[in-house]
């Protein structure tokens, strides 16, 4: 078993913030942990890594109890950037990890190149932007090629290019056999990373495979919108009109090719096709509708 969380409960003052969490991961994969602010995502990760006490339950990572610090040879945890030391350089941080993990120093250059931080490797962290700090945090947790990687809001402060780079690195890690448990508010990115999403609501975990929600939403720009509406209504296809400009429909309702065939047959020219994944966001809205912190 790669990850086993059994009946994890945590009370904060009088309130249960985690109400018996169970997680079992047997194969390397990416799992997203999603929930509104204060739902307990960070608390769960901190409990899993034995940084926080918990009232009940057990946690095993790679078959070992989480109280054994040896697990961190193969388990990494990306936390917020407060763990960094401003007076030290990025190189100092990575060298420290290399030293305590018993890794060769060549890994530093290697991981810096992979993350794209060679240019500021020798600069002090206090001069870093938020994005640069996130890069360093990422480098620090992947330098040891972990088998389990826990990531708490890894996309915070990243520009779109860096976010794409991080996503690609995570997908590579999954291919290399790393199990990644990632919490994020960026549902679009989550959608691109995985279908396996655990929603944390009121201290409980709703485990879902979002294949059914991981749909694409298509946006078609046509030469004659009114005619296109008529064609699709006649063919009993579920669609809507977006912004009085585009025909929009979801992949789960109808296949793209079917829509194209109907429109072409009736002489409606398709000028452009855009698509967007909507899985996690759609399910999130369903689950947390009306929640003030959503």
């Amino acid at each position: 078993m790669i990850v086993k969380v059994d009946g994890l409960k945590k009370k904060y003052k009088k309130d249960w913030v985690l109400k018996g969490i169970d997680i079992e991961v047997e194969e390397p994969q990416i799992i997203a942990l999603v929930g509104p602010n204060g739902s307990g995502k960070t608390t769960l990760m901190n409990c899993m890594t034995n940084l926080l006490t918990y009232d009940q339950g057990e946690v095993e990572l790679l078959g070992q109890k989480n109280t054994d610090t040896k697990i961190f040879k193969d388990v990494s945890y990306l936390q917020d950037n407060r763990i960094l030391y401003g007076t030290l350089t990025a190189y100092d941080h990575l060298k420290f990890i290399c030293d305590v993990q018993g890794l060769p120093k060549s890994k530093i250059e290697e991981v810096a190149k992979r993350v794209g931080m060679e240019s500021y490797l020798k600069k002090r962290v206090q001069s870093f932007s938020l994005g640069m700090k996130q890069h360093l945090l990422l480098a620090m947790v992947i330098i040891n090629d972990p088998k389990v990687l826990l990531m708490d809001e890894p996309l915070t402060g990243l520009d779109p290019t860096s976010a794409i780079d991080m996503r690609n690195i995570l997908l590579e890690l999954r291919e290399e056999g790393t199990t990644v448990i990632v919490s994020s508010h960026n549902l679009d990115e989550i959608d691109r990373l995985t279908n396996k999403i655990y929603f944390l609501k009121d201290g409980a975990l709703l485990k879902e495979s979002l294949e059914q929600f991981a749909t694409k939403e298509y946006y078609l720009t046509v030469d004659d919108l009114t005619k296109a509406e008529g064609v699709l209504e006649e063919a009993a296809i579920t669609f809507s009109v977006y912004n009085q400009e585009q025909i929009t429909f979801e992949e789960t309702d109808v296949e793209l090719q079917t829509v194209i065939d109907h429109l072409n047959k009736q002489g409606v020219a398709i000028l452009d096709i855009e698509n967007e994944r909507v899985g996690a966001e759609k399910r999130y809205r369903e689950l947390f509708e009306g929640d003030a912190s959503v």
């Binding site: 890594t49 034995n50 610090t69 040879k73 945890y77 407060r82 763990i83 305590v100």
Partner: peptide, 15 residues
């Protein structure tokens, strides 16, 4: 206070 202890607590050595 700054939570930087978390970095030390999540490394494979005796605390």
């Amino acid at each position: 206070e700054s939570r930087s202890i978390n970095l030390l607590f999540t490394q494979p050595f005796n605390r």
